[in-house]
Structures are given as C-alpha cells and as structure tokens.
C-alpha cells in the first residue's frame, strides 16, 4: 500500500526527514505516532473514502478490524457518510473491551448508551478543498498500521519528533542506517542537533534488511 499524498505538496512543509532503519528495529519508530500525525485531505470526503480510496487501506481490513472510530471526539457509526473537515481529528481503534468500549463500536448494539455525542451524518460545503487532518491510531491498529503510515510518509509536529529522539536516543542504538534532512544526508546522531522549525515536518521511514 502507498499513501497518496500528491495533493499535499502545495501546502505542505518544505522540511523533510527521511530515515532508513533496520527491519528488526522498525517497530521502535511506531512510537512516533503515539500522539497522532497529520495527513492532507480533500475536505468533505468521507472517512471511508479517505482511508480506503485515497490512502489505500484494504476494505475488508477497514470494515472488520477498525471497529471504533472517532471524528472530533464523536463516535462514528457510518464511515461512508461521516465527512472530514479541515483540521479534524480522526482516531481509529480495534474493538474495545468493557461496556463503554462496546458502546463506542461503530453501529454497535450499545451505541444508544452514548446519548447525544455520536457523530452526525453530514456533508461539508467546502468540499474539494485541500485541508489537514490529524490521525490517531490506537492499540492493535497502531501496531498494524503504524509501519504502513511511516513508510508512506506523514507529517508530524516538530516537537513530537524532537522529543521522541531525545527520549529514546539510547534505545535506538544502531537502528538508524541512513538519515536525510531537507534533502541532505546527515549522520544518525545529527538528528539531535537539528534546529527544528516551528511547523509540521514531513517524515518518511523505510526499513532495510
């Protein structure tokens, strides 16, 4: 799968970080996504269109594995009609334990126990424009889709990247094989020396055997 972000180039940061890491250590970088990451969207498209048609998630995986979705903190029952807006926050999770976990499941028996907080079916008048969305991946979805998004390329807040490498510099060891910052190669330890701009950074990580 490949994340199609061609529409992003016009508004995206020009700052880019590219890493090649060892396959055995690739999972260690999924922690970069713990607090969410950004992608470009076409405003007004549905959650399902965004994730399946444009980003390329397998439809059966989307239907069966992603059982809990929140759009701007509102549980989504029908991803085919829930429209994404500029600066929206989309959270994706597998089925969750507990009554409350079951309550948030898309279209679940217990959804009525939420009361009034469900996401409404809607459409957006600004449909078609390019915008941003923050995506959060939880539990099994983080483990399973995290590598996919890292390989496809995403945007992260610079302080998120900075904090990640500062906190984990000791545990990453020799995992990083190659680093490029703004198109120029730097040594792996040089990540800690980067003067990070105060804007989203495009980051892409691939693994090598």
């Amino acid at each position: 799968m490949h994340i199609n972000q061609e529409s992003a180039t016009g508004e995206a940061s020009q700052h880019g970080l590219f890493l090649a890491v060892t396959a055995a250590d690739f999972h260690k970088f999924v922690g970069l996504l713990n607090t969410g990451f950004m992608l470009n969207i076409r405003v007004g498209e549905s959650v399902q269109t965004l994730l399946c048609d444009r980003i390329g998630l397998d439809k059966s995986y989307f239907d069966e594995r992603i059982q809990t979705l929140f759009l701007n903190s509102k549980p989504v029952d029908d991803p085919a009609t829930a429209a994404v807006k500029n600066n929206a926050i989309l959270a994706l999770s597998a089925a969750m334990p507990g009554l409350v976990g079951a309550t948030f499941r898309k279209g679940g028996t217990y959804r009525w126990m939420r009361g009034s907080i469900s996401h409404p079916d809607d459409s957006d008048t600004a449909a078609g424009k390019v915008g941003w969305i923050t995506v959060k991946l939880f539990n099994l979805i983080l483990k399973e889709l995290g590598p996919f998004f890292l390989e496809g390329g995403i945007w992260l807040r610079s302080e998120t990247i900075q904090a990640f490498f500062k906190e984990r510099s000791g545990s990453l060891g020799d995992a990083i094989q190659y680093v490029s910052w703004n198109g120029g190669e730097i040594v792996p330890g040089g990540i800690l020396e980067i003067e990070w701009p105060d804007e989203p950074i495009y980051i892409k990580i691939i693994h090598q055997n």
Partner: peptide, 20 residues
C-alpha cells in the same frame, strides 16, 4: 488480541478520545 497485548488500560486512549 487486544486484552492480552495491552490489558484493560487499552481503554485510556479511546475513552479519552471520546471525551468520557
């Protein structure tokens, strides 16, 4: 899968995201 991997604390992110 979910409970063995993360325990019941797997709920924190989701309940927080839901505003509950």
């Amino acid at each position: 899968e979910g409970l063995p991997a993360y325990g019941t604390n797997v709920l924190t992110n989701v309940i927080n995201e839901a505003g509950g």
